[in-house]
Design a protein around this nucleic acid. Structure first.
Length: 134
DNA sequence: ATTCGTTAGCGCCCCCTGCTGGG
DNA sequence: CCCAGCAGGGGGCGCTAACGAAT
């Protein structure tokens, strides 16, 4: 079943398997059983260690861009990169016309709408916008 | 049956760089 | 010209989920 039977005693978060719970508890306790042989980094899961080794030591980049020479360690990085070719901007700002190719860029952009920045960057509003400035 | 390794996917944060507008 | 603010591109890690292999 998809029941999450394994519950963390520290935060009550539930998991499908004992291994997932075990990894999660290691996050709480700071236990990092997977040590890198080539530096002093250590990780909770083998997957994190494996990725770290690709980034820092083996330099293996399995994901190749079909348009340019870019390659990446992670598929998500390749998807992000592809948007620089396609121009796709899935992350739209609710307060202005800005849209980002990257989720964090939108978050960073939102700082420009924060209280302190408002006088400096009043966004271009359409007739349908309903923002009120105090 | 349980654990482990791998892959996949989401997210967060940081850095460097280039552009632009104001002083 | 210089500087600050901002966005674009990318690197690296945190964490969870699913699944097959190994124990």
């Amino acid at each position: 079943s998809d029941e999450k039977r394994y519950v963390c005693h520290l935060c009550l978060k539930a998991f499908h398997t004992a291994t997932l719970l075990h990894n999660h508890v290691n996050v709480h306790t700071g236990t990092r059983p997977y040590k890198c042989n080539d530096c002093d980094m250590a990780f909770v899961t083998s997957g994190e260690l494996s990725r770290h080794r690709r980034y820092k030591h083996t330099l293996e980049k399995p994901f190749k861009c079909s348009v340019c020479k870019y390659s990446s360690v992670e598929a998500s990085k390749m998807r992000r990169h592809i948007r620089s070719h396609t121009g796709e901007r899935p992350y739209a700002c609710d307060l202005c016309s800005y849209a980002s190719k990257d989720a964090y860029k939108l978050k960073r952009h939102m700082i420009t709408h924060s209280e302190n920045n408002l006088p400096l960057s009043i966004p271009p509003l359409s007739m349908t916008d309903r923002i009120e400035y105090n």
